[in-house]
């Protein structure tokens, strides 16, 4: 779950970032509209949290320009609470609208809900073969037995569960697993794939040479 937080208030941005990461999200941040737009258009995020009142480019403008090129889900997080603003936000392409002040729990819940919608998997629990993943509690089960996973492992598993039977390139996986702080250390990915294979079965994740990985739990 890779998200972009665009918020000009430095303290709030920092808190949101820390919280999202603590919740297991992979998160980047931008402090104004220009930076946010740049990042949003150049990387693939699973979700963008967008503030409205920002210097340089404001939230409305950013939303418009993102929507020109991408279908990334956008949740507007803003102090503009009037009904007119809310309707405008949703009509101009946002997928959700959250008014400040908000509790972080609610923000996380909305992020998860949006992700489920995007991945076309409305159930909070994902099942495939012997593997069961509870996306709310961030727990995984194999053959009804709880499996211990680190945050990164869980993220990778969740991604695979959402995009099962799809070939995912290494770049794609990499982009969604690591945030801008991480150095490019490519074999980190191999390590996580290895760990998952050992916990859920060797054949669950198959390697496609030159293309990437594909998750096929049924086989």
């Amino acid at each position: 779950m890779k998200i972009l937080i665009v918020e000009d208030n430095q303290r709030l941005r920092r808190s949101m970032l820390e919280y999202a990461r603590a919740e297991g999200c992979v998160a980047d941040a931008a402090s104004d509209g220009e930076e946010g737009l740049y990042k949003a258009l150049n990387w693939d995020y699973d979700l963008i949290l967008l503030d409205v009142m920002m210097p340089k480019i404001d939230g409305w403008e950013m939303l418009r320009r993102i929507r020109e090129r991408k279908t990334t889900p956008v949740i507007m997080v803003t102090a503009r609470a009037q009904i007119d603003d809310r309707v405008r936000g949703l009509d101009e392409g946002a997928d959700d609208y959250l008014v400040k002040p908000f509790e972080m729990r609610e923000l996380m819940a909305r992020i998860r809900a949006n992700t489920r919608r995007v991945e076309n998997n409305p159930q909070p629990c994902l099942e495939a073969g012997d593997i069961m993943v509870n996306t709310v509690k961030r727990l995984a089960y194999f053959k009804d037995q709880a499996v211990e996973l680190t945050a990164r492992e869980y993220n990778l598993l969740e991604m695979f569960m959402y995009k099962r039977n799809e070939v995912l390139s290494r770049e794609f996986i990499y982009d969604h697993l690591f945030d801008e702080r991480d150095e490019t250390v490519s074999n980190m990915l191999e390590v996580y794939v290895y760990k998952l294979r050992s916990k859920f079965g060797k054949d669950s994740i198959q390697t496609r040479r030159g293309l990437g990985y594909v998750f096929m739990p049924e086989s």
């Binding site: 208030n9 303290r11 709030l12 808190s15 949101m16 820390e18 919280y19 603590a22 102090a79 609470a81 008014v99 400040k100 002040p101 908000f102 509790e103 972080m104 729990r105």
Partner: peptide
């Protein structure tokens, strides 16, 4: 009400964060 929204969000977000067990 409008102006106070931002400082309150800041406090709330950071408190939510700090109250996590880790």
């Amino acid at each position: 009400s409008h102006e106070l929204r931002t400082p309150v969000s800041v406090i709330l977000a950071d408190c939510d964060l700090a109250l996590r067990k880790e």
